[in-house]
Structures are given as C-alpha cells and as structure tokens.
Write a protein that binds this DNA or RNA. Sequence first.
DNA 1: CGCAAAACTTTACACTGTAAAGATTGTAGG
DNA 2: CCTACAATCTTTACAGTGTAAAGTTTTGCG
Lengths: 197, 197
Amino acid sequence: MNSNYHHGDLKNALIQAGIEILSKDGMQALTLRNVAKKAGVSHAAPYAHFTDKQALIAAIATEGYKKLYQQLAAAQNSQPDPADCLFAVAQAYIQFALDEPAHFKITFAGVVEAEQNYPDYVEQSKRSFALVVAVVIDCQNQNRVAPGDPELIAVSMWACIHGFVQLWLGNQLPGTLITQHAVPELLQVLLRPFLLN
Amino acid sequence: MNSNYHHGDLKNALIQAGIEILSKDGMQALTLRNVAKKAGVSHAAPYAHFTDKQALIAAIATEGYKKLYQQLAAAQNSQPDPADCLFAVAQAYIQFALDEPAHFKITFAGVVEAEQNYPDYVEQSKRSFALVVAVVIDCQNQNRVAPGDPELIAVSMWACIHGFVQLWLGNQLPGTLITQHAVPELLQVLLRPFLLN
DNA sequence: CGCAAAACTTTACACTGTAAAGATTGTAGG
DNA sequence: CCTACAATCTTTACAGTGTAAAGTTTTGCG
C-alpha cells in the first residue's frame, strides 16, 4: 500500500501549486519540477495530466481568467448605477492585477496559440469581455457613454485599463504618478474620456 | 595569430544577434548560447560584457526603446497638425509592435528592477514618454485635447494604445475586430475619446 | 479474480545559465 | 623592445530545466 500512487486530484493540485508558487515567488520560480515538488509528486508526474509545460500554464491562465471574471462580476453586481458599475469593474481589474501580479501576467501573456489548442482559455476570455460589453451597453442606455459599437468601445476601455496596469507592473509609469495619486483618482482620469456629462 | 580572440565590438554584436533572433525565431529562441553562436563566439563569451542574461536582455530592451523613439519622433515630425501628429505617433507605436512583436514584448516586459540596475533603459523610457507629453501639450494649445495635467493625459493615451497592442499580441481581442477593421480605423476609435470637437 | 489501463516513479538525456580556470591578445611602464 | 598585466575569449564543469522512455503500483472493469 504505497500511497505515493494515485494522488486523487493531482491535476487541480498541480494548478493550485502553480498559482501559489506564482503568488509567493514569482514567474521565474514557476518550474515544472517546483510545481511537482509542491504537490508532493515526482518531477515527471505532471505529464500524466498535461502534455507539456505550456498546457499547465494554459490551465493556470484559465484559472486566472476565472478568478478575474468572478471579481469583475462581483464588482458589477455591487453597483446599480451603470457608470459606478464601470468604475467598480475597472477597479476590480486593477486590484486583481496588483494583488497577484505574476498570475495576472501569465493569464494574459502566458498562453500562445490559444485559439488552436486551449479552447477553455478562450472561453473564459470571451466571458470576461462580454461582461464589459454588457456594462458599456448599460451605460449607453443611460446616456453615460456615447452611442456606437459597444464592442469597440469596450475594447477601448479594456485596452486603456489593461495598458495602464501593464505599464504599472512593468515599472513604465513615471514614478511620481503612482506615489502622488490614489488608484480611484487614476481611474477617474483613465475613464473620464469615455464618459459623457 | 588566432583571430578567435578580441572580436572588436562583441558587445554590440551580441545585442544585434539577440535582436535578429527575436525577429526570426521569437522569444523562446533567445538563449545566451544561441546569441553567442550567432555572434560566432563561445557560449561563455558574453560574460565578458554582460553580468548575466538579464543584463543582455536589458541592453536589447534599451535598443528596442531607442528604435521605438526614432519611429515616434519620425511620425511626430511628419505631421504639422497636432491631432494628426497624435495619430501618426500612435500608428508608429502600433506598427513597431506589429513589425517586431518579440522585440516589443521584451522591451516592455523583459526588464525587471529597471530603476535600480539599468539606468540607460529608464532614460530611454522617459525620453519616449516625454515625446508623447509634448504632443499632448501641442494638442491642448490648439484646443484639440481637453485641458488638464498633460502627463496624466499622456499616460492615459499611452495606456490605451499600449493595452490595445498588448491585447492584440496576446490574441485577447475578439477575432472579428482585427479582420473587420483596419488599423487606422481602430486608432480613430481608440483616440477619439481623448479628442475634442 | 485477473488483467488492462491509468497514475505515478525512476532513469536518462539534451539544453540552459553560470562559475572557474586556462589560453590568447592588446597595452602601458620599464 | 620587452615584459608584466589586464582584457577578452575558450574550455571545462556543474546544477537546474523540460521531456522522453521504461518500470512500478493502483484502480476498475470484464
């Protein structure tokens, strides 16, 4: 009775181990052997559940998108007014990125050739985007956002927030910006161009 | 007389070799040994000019920022009207990212702890940002952009364009977007919220 | 119960970054 | 001029990485 075999739910254990490694020690520590060790299995065990490292990364990224969607959805439901809703969703997006920078980075940059090989990932991506589109449409219905293709507007907003976070995480923003302005204030600046009134 | 020694300008040759590898085979091919081989030296030779791989990457990223600045400056000088200028600069930014995606990615995501260790990189970063700020100020002087802290507005615009490119390169944009709209048209959508009239 | 498939371990290998020591060359001081 | 020295490059070596292959244990189905 060697309990080393048949872990039970190793696949999810590996994903979770990877997420913890990202959270604690960052991207450079996300190695297959590290993940396996953290899950308590031999270094080749992951290959029973993932064809290669990319597949594990894709699973971790998919999980990241799921978490992100939950945060966005919670923010969306927290505000009845569409414009407030937009701000809350944007703030949740930024918060996720700042709370788990490594996981966030891998969620958006870790998956290559997503379309062909990782449909689950693509699905989560579309779900989050659809949420933003819905918020934009709500805003348009209340005349808080100019009319026009809501998908195009949602992409613009997403790009604006995403780019801001990306520059922030990459230390590309002028140092004075972050120190002198709070996040909600920066959000005002970022989103004001898209709002009417 | 063994000419294997004292290459002449190996440091720049390595940087150039790295850039070519990025352009031809992408990020996963950017290995120290590959770079050394392409430059025609042994795999440990780079350590005479770079303390580690990160230092070489930082040099490549700095070079990327220099190229980007040149493209932006050329675009800036090509248009007398400030608003046209803004579009041209944004388009140059996108063009650089699409022409050399791997080099672009490494320019913005490859350097960690830039402030402390890579002052050249930080300098190039600030120079490009200053250019955008100047364009914004020009636009404000002609009432094409709303008044307000030009640095904040420039960051917003940069974030918008940068985020868009980042999402594009990461295949995060709805597939129909890219196929149905040309780049200049997308730029219109992205920048219109920042423009008056 | 038996046996095939699934899950895991062990072993092995090529490739990576990097350290250390040796070989070669340019160069400054006698 | 030549001789030490410093800079540059090569060779050798090693630990860590992803991954393939073969062996071992367990599960579940006929």
